[in-house]
Simulated assay, not measured.
Amino acid sequence: MKFHIAINLERMDDTTDMLAMRDHTLEMVKMADKAGFEVAWAAEHHALEMTIAPNPFQLMTWWADHTTDIRVGCGVANASYWHPINLAGEAAMVDLLSGGRLELGLGSGAYQREFDRMRPGLDQKDSHKYMQEMLPLVRELWKGDVEHQGENWQFPKATSCPKPVQADVPMWVAARSPATFDYAVANDCNVMCWPLTMPMAEAEKYKALLSEAIEKAGGNWNGTFACMRHTAVYANEEDRAATMGSIRNVLGKFGNLMMKKGDVVNGFPENVPLEELEGNVRVDPTMLEENLMFGSPETVIEKLRAYETLGVDAFIYYASMGLDMEVQKRSLQLFIDHVMPAFEKEMSLAS
């Protein structure tokens, strides 16, 4: 099993210093680079302080400039917010400036609030059409001149400038529905999934959908299956309590966005009362500690073994949950020092 890290520039309120938050994010990525993590993932979100990422390609270029080996990926760019020529060029520029370390992830977005501002009139449930048109078109633009007359974009002959330095840029799709798994496999893309706060059964469901998609495609798929979870490794009760408080706080804000309850003021989502959260946004402390990648190093190793047995090729350590910066760093260092060594043989074989 390989390891990736996903981290955001995040502020839960306006008391967090922007520069300190910026420097912390880079320090975490540098720690991951030194430890042998394979990819650092940057998100795309707009007008939200809890995920400050209006252009993931800027973050990826910044991280690449301060690291040596770790690859940089957008997890994920929302296809409907971009023009294909623009996205192809921005992504290829990251590949050029990073010396060939780009991983390009595309998705359909999550929050209707963002669509109402970035793509007015588009319903989130219809946004997959943009991703499905965008992905093969970007590949064609990287090859040379393309004239396109599609459903969502039309333009005369053009190409991407620059071109990627990699001959074959790894492409990723964020998948949840059966149709998206089918599309990812049919288009030779890697797959990332996020079970949110749901039990292990949710990850098992995604693996089953992937297996079904591979079978439909004749069994021909050599991609990577990655699974992301909020992660916190702790060795004392103080850090455990801080983790549980932070995840419940951030889920209250996440519930605001997913359930369209509450307001967002100056970029800060109001918290939805925890008792009103339901579905994928569940906040019972016992359930959270069981379902998420929380616990002592020994507990986290045991949980990761279950994902490895399931067939997860890469685990994405999702560091961002409004947790105190020093607690975040302690967690990552515990993961590096005590969890990763248990998988060194697997990591070596996967390289």
Rank of each mutant, 00 (worst) to 15 (best):
E346H: 10
K143F: 07
M200H: 11
I85A: 14
A20W: 00
A232H: 08
E151Y: 06
S211I: 07
H230A: 11
P199M: 02
W153F: 10
V165I: 13
H66T: 07
P285A: 11
G99S: 10
I5F: 13
T25V: 09
V300M: 12
N280F: 13
M60Y: 00
A20Q: 12
K216W: 04
D337C: 00
L19S: 12
I301P: 02
G89C: 10
G105T: 02
G322M: 05
L292M: 14
P178N: 02
F268H: 07
Q124N: 14
K216E: 08
I336W: 06
K329I: 03
G267I: 01
W62K: 07
M50A: 03
V185F: 00
L251P: 01
K163H: 13
M31H: 04
E147C: 10
C74N: 14
M18K: 07
H230T: 07
H45T: 06
A217C: 10
D116W: 07
K261F: 06
W62D: 12
G267W: 01
A64Q: 12
N291E: 01
M1P: 02
E103F: 06
G218Y: 09
A88R: 01
G219D: 04
A174M: 05
A350Q: 13
E237N: 09
Q154Y: 09
N249H: 14
N280R: 13
R113F: 15
M244N: 06
T159L: 08
D65T: 14
W63M: 13
M198N: 14
A32V: 09
A91G: 00
M60R: 03
L102H: 00
Y317M: 01
K129S: 14
K34R: 15
D65E: 15
V29N: 10
F225K: 02
S177G: 05
G107L: 02
A217L: 04
S351M: 08
S177T: 14
D188R: 15
L274E: 12
Q166D: 09
G252H: 10
M321A: 04
E270S: 07
F155I: 01
K163T: 14
P170Q: 09
M118G: 08
S211D: 15
A77R: 01
W153V: 06
A217R: 07
M134W: 03
T309A: 15
G107R: 00
K34D: 10
L349K: 13
E90N: 05
K345W: 08
T68E: 15
M287K: 13
D324K: 11
E10C: 11
V233K: 08
V283G: 06
V191H: 09
A350D: 12
G73H: 00
N187M: 12
G100V: 07
H83K: 11
N8D: 15
V138R: 01
L26E: 11
K143C: 08
K157I: 11
D284K: 12
D188T: 11
L323P: 07
A42C: 08
V94D: 02
D126F: 09
K34A: 15
